[in-house]
Design a protein around this nucleic acid. Sequence first.
RNA 1: CGGGGUGUAGCUCAGUCUGGUUAGAGUACCUGGUUUGGGACCAGGGGGUCGAAGGUUCGAGUCCUUUCACCCCGACCA
Length: 435
Amino acid sequence: MRRTKAFIPTSKEAPSDALLASHIFLSRAGFISQVAAGLYSYMPLAKKVIRKIENVIHDEMANVGAQEVELSFVAPADLWIESGRIDKFGKELLRFYDRKEKLFVLGPTHEEMMVDLVRNRVTSYKNLPLNLYQIKTKFRDEVRPRYGLMRGREFIMKDGYSFHASEDDLEREFNALEDAYKKIITRLGLDFRVVEADSGAIGGSGSKEIMVIAQSGEDNLAICDKCEYGANIEVFMNLDELPEDFDATSITDIKEIKSDDNCPHCDGKLSLTKGIEVGHIFKLGTTYSKALKAEYLDENGKAQPFIMGTYGMGVSRLVAAVIEQHHDENGCIWTKETAPYMVNIMISNIKDNNQMEVGELLYSQLLEANVEVIIDDRKDRFGFKMKDAELIGFPYTVIIGKELSNGIVEIFDRKTKEKTEVNVKNIFDKVMELI
RNA sequence: CGGGGUGUAGCUCAGUCUGGUUAGAGUACCUGGUUUGGGACCAGGGGGUCGAAGGUUCGAGUCCUUUCACCCCGACCA
């Protein structure tokens, strides 16, 4: 992509109401644009990041044998009446009537739809287990949307549902999905913990959350410094029977009281931190299959409700989570798996024919090698273009400028901010080595 | 849903208290020129139903009433 042709509206100013780094930088760097409370449009850079995250998810889902489907966004309210959730979900569930006065909802999560898809189609234990997932826009009419992509009303989520003939098989699948989720977040380059969690409104028993560690997170966590143990603080405090009148108004208060605590799983010490919930997996059991009468025949020809699991991952929230964990005062720092472009070729002065030639050659070579590359061919000054590159956060910027007269170009590493001089003859090989 | 705040140029804001020429700044954008290693400079230019409706007044961005939107704190949150 040529920067002169790209739709990347960057800005010096952030929206006045943006508080979080992800909200500020994703807005300033031209990734997202707010259209109403909790509603955002994704511009080309965001779209590319989203697609990269989705690809990692698809990849790992394929590895555990989950199959992709896509359910309709608009769902008949009948299903929600049948499951009994129409009242339970409350106003978060956006309802409306079509022209025939039939009631519909905008899907905030798709247990009902998925069970409806499978019931009466999978009718034998021989066809179990089954794991179906989709990546789709969801809508929850949150009372108070905030923090940019972190807590929007409309958001992209991967949601998966598994169907089993036994608790043991659900247990196996649950563990497999936990592993897959860990792989996904690891591949995206994020520091995280899997924590024990509360099952919330969806219901069910076993429940774990995948938390990306970030100070701006909305969840308080207790994590072990030695093993992988972590727990959502509400769950942890219940276990520990803290006094009921304990007023946990700030993380510091909790810290004072809890800092001496030992890990329940090893001899490590617990510390408190904050996390962004990017994934949530539950063992649903038969809650929905019973309510929606979704049954299969077992070995004895007896009808049994499906034993189910559900596995969610916030795709658009992950975009924000990457930036919450990876940014500095100058802007975004994308990880290699999430970067909208891996390499930015920055031509310091486009009026210098040598600089242009070297830049164009490297650009065509990288394109040929299937590297995601953008060339900054704008008629702007060095400083302006560097600030812009740092704001957007390309992992590497190849600087073609002054030093070219000595046969030298530089590779700027966004994360370390180091510039490495490279002989212009070796620049292609050097870039290929790095990425 | 309670409490609070803010709506003026694409963006960030001044002006409102104390009504009075043609509504401003910075930034962004367009034209020309100079510049080219850390968000340049000079000159010229386009861009506004002052959130909306109603009212008071000779006169409303400014005062009054109503309404809508957005944000913050809290409660809530797969």
